[in-house]
Amino acid sequence: MRLFPRRRPTPTPTPAPQATPQTWTPEGTTVTQRYLGLAGATVLVYSSGSLYFAASCLGCTYQAATDQELREAKAAELANAHAAQCRALPRGVPERPDDATAATIVRTRVRELQRYVDERHFTLDDFLADRVYLQRGRDWILAALIDLAEREPQVLKVTVGRPSESGNTYTYLTALPRQSCTTTSDWR
């Protein structure tokens, strides 16, 4: 009988690294700057590959670029100003919504873009501020918009243009004017 048998310790698996607000990047975006709020919440400055940027706080509900086109310097200025006064605690990385919830976010944004009088042309950059909560790339958002246009042609019109000289195919998105609501059940 041996008192101290030699055994190799059983290795414990190391857990996969969790995304933290300091390292997390929403799908389909490039985070260019991060600011730390007073109580530790992270404010992101990000782009989806276009010339425009947005800022979003992961501690509170602050978003810049909801209906404005920001260049990186202006988005960084807004993010820094927000971080200097934000007292929100860090909430961590938002959970990725399921496809139905993400489609609802897209539909809500299109309804916000609708006007009562005239058509409103828009691009995928109009969804830049929503990227933190959508956590989807351009292709998914475009597919959701095409699906919305097929299901609700009175809300959205999608036109795919011919390829240009550079080989790019352009997609034109138009939020159609809202119809007059006669009853409260017509409101959406």
Rank of each mutant, 00 (worst) to 15 (best):
F4Y: 13
P5H: 09
P5C: 04
R6P: 11
R6D: 13
R7M: 10
R8P: 15
R8Y: 14
P9R: 15
P11G: 06
P11N: 03
T12W: 12
T12A: 15
T12N: 13
P13R: 12
T14E: 07
P15V: 08
P15I: 04
P15A: 12
A16T: 12
P17R: 08
Q18C: 14
T20Y: 08
P21Q: 02
P21D: 03
P21G: 10
Q22A: 10
T23W: 12
W24A: 02
W24P: 06
P26I: 07
E27D: 14
E27I: 00
G28N: 00
T29V: 02
T30W: 01
V31A: 03
V31G: 04
Y35W: 14
L36T: 11
L36D: 03
G37Q: 07
G40L: 06
A41K: 04
A41F: 01
L44T: 05
S47G: 06
G49R: 01
L51D: 09
F53I: 01
A54L: 04
A55R: 02
A55S: 07
A55W: 05
S56F: 04
C57N: 03
L58Q: 08
C60G: 05
T61A: 15
Y62N: 01
Y62A: 00
A65D: 05
T66Q: 07
D67K: 14
Q68M: 08
E69L: 15
A73W: 02
K74M: 02
E77A: 04
L78F: 00
N80A: 14
N80K: 11
A81P: 00
H82E: 01
H82M: 02
A83H: 00
C86G: 03
A88C: 04
A88D: 02
L89M: 12
P90C: 06
P90E: 07
G92Q: 08
V93Q: 04
V93P: 12
P94A: 05
P94R: 04
E95F: 11
R96P: 13
R96M: 05
A100S: 08
A102Q: 08
A102V: 05
I105W: 08
I105Q: 10
I105P: 14
E112D: 08
V117W: 12
H121P: 13
H121L: 14
T123L: 06
D125F: 06
D125P: 05
D126N: 08
D126F: 09
D126A: 09
F127V: 02
F127C: 03
F127K: 09
D130C: 07
D130I: 06
L134E: 01
R136L: 00
R136Y: 01
R138F: 02
D139T: 00
I141H: 00
L142E: 00
L142V: 00
L145K: 15
I146T: 11
L148K: 01
A149G: 02
R151S: 09
Q154K: 15
Q154V: 15
Q154P: 10
L156P: 09
G161I: 05
G161A: 07
P163E: 10
E165N: 10
Y170K: 14
T171P: 09
T171L: 08
L173Y: 09
L176E: 05
L176Y: 05
P177F: 02
Q179F: 13
T182S: 11
T182E: 11
T183W: 06
T184L: 10
T184E: 12
S185L: 12
R188E: 15
R188K: 11
